[in-house]
C-alpha cells in the first residue's frame, strides 16, 4: 500500500458516496447513465470472484464488498425507487460494442487460461471503457449538474492516481509491472482528459458544466 494507491481508492470510495448523495438529496438520477452503473456491477462481480478464495487483506475484502453492494444499490435506486427520474431515451450507448471487444480481448490477453483469470482480464478491460455510456450521455445533453461532475472527477482522479501507484510499485517491488492493468488503466485515464479540461476550466471556476454546442 502506498499513498497514491490509498488516495486513489479513497477517491473511488468518495465518487460512489457522491453519487449516492446526489441521488438521495435530489431524489433523482437525472443525468446518470444506468448503463455505466450496470457495467460497473459487471466489472466488480467478474473481478471479485476470488473474494472468498484469495485473501489479500481486510482492507481489500471490505472495499470489494462495499463496491459490489453500493453499486447494486445504485442500480436498485435507478430502476425501482427513482425510476421515473431516469430517462432511457438519452442513455443510448450500445453496450454490446463494449462487451464484445472486451470479451475478445480477455480471451486473447490473460495471465492464465482459467475461467477466473479470463474473467479478471475481462473486468479490467471492461472497467477501462465502462464510463463511455456516461460520457456519451453528457455529450448528448451538453451539460451536467455540478454534483454529477464532482462524481466524475472523483472517479477520474481514482484512475489517474493508480498511475503513480504503478510507477511507485515498479521501483519498490523489484521491477514488477502488470501489462494488462497498466494498458487498460492508461486508456481509462485518457478517456477522462476532455472531461477534466472542462471540469478544471469551468466547474472549479464556479461555472456550470456546459459543453460548447
Amino acid at each position: 500500500m502506498n499513498i497514491f494507491r490509498l488516495l486513489g481508492d479513497l477517491s473511488h470510495l468518495a465518487s460512489i458516496l457522491i453519487l449516492l448523495h446526489k441521488i438521495q438529496t435530489t431524489r433523482s438520477c437525472r443525468g446518470i447513465s444506468f448503463k455505466t452503473q450496470a457495467l460497473y456491477v459487471t466489472v466488480f462481480v467478474t473481478r471479485y470472484l476470488d473474494i472468498f478464495t484469495d485473501w489479500v487483506s481486510l482492507y481489500n475484502f471490505t472495499m470489494k464488498i462495499f463496491f459490489i453492494a453500493s453499486t447494486c444499490y445504485i442500480l436498485y435506486l435507478m430502476k425501482m425507487k427513482y425510476r421515473p427520474t431516469h430517462d432511457p431515451s438519452i442513455d443510448t450507448f450500445r453496450v454490446e460494442y463494449l462487451l464484445g471487444p472486451c470479451a475478445l480481448l480477455a480471451l486473447l490477453f490473460h495471465y492464465r487460461f482459467t475461467v477466473l483469470e479470463v474473467l479478471w482480464s475481462f473486468s479490467i478491460f471492461l472497467e477501462s471503457v465502462a464510463i463511455l455510456p456516461q460520457l456519451f450521455m453528457l455529450q448528448r445533453t451538453g451539460e451536467a449538474e455540478t454534483i454529477t461532475t464532482h462524481y466524475l472527477a472523483a472517479l477520474g482522479a481514482y484512475r489517474a492516481l493508480y498511475i503513480p501507484n504503478w510507477i511507485y510499485r515498479y521501483f519498490t517491488e523489484s521491477g514488477q509491472i502488470d501489462p494488462i492493468a497498466v494498458t487498460a488503466g492508461l486508456v481509462q485515464t485518457a478517456l477522462y482528459l476532455d472531461f477534466f479540461y472542462v471540469y478544471f476550466t469551468k466547474v472549479l471556476q464556479g461555472q456550470k458544466f456546459e459543453l460548447p454546442a
Binding site: 473511488h12 481489500n60 470489494k64 493508480y162 514488477q176
Partner: peptide, 10 residues
Amino acid sequence: STDSVGHDEL
C-alpha cells in the same frame, strides 16, 4: 490466481 500487481488492487 496469479500474483500480478493488478491482482491485489481493486
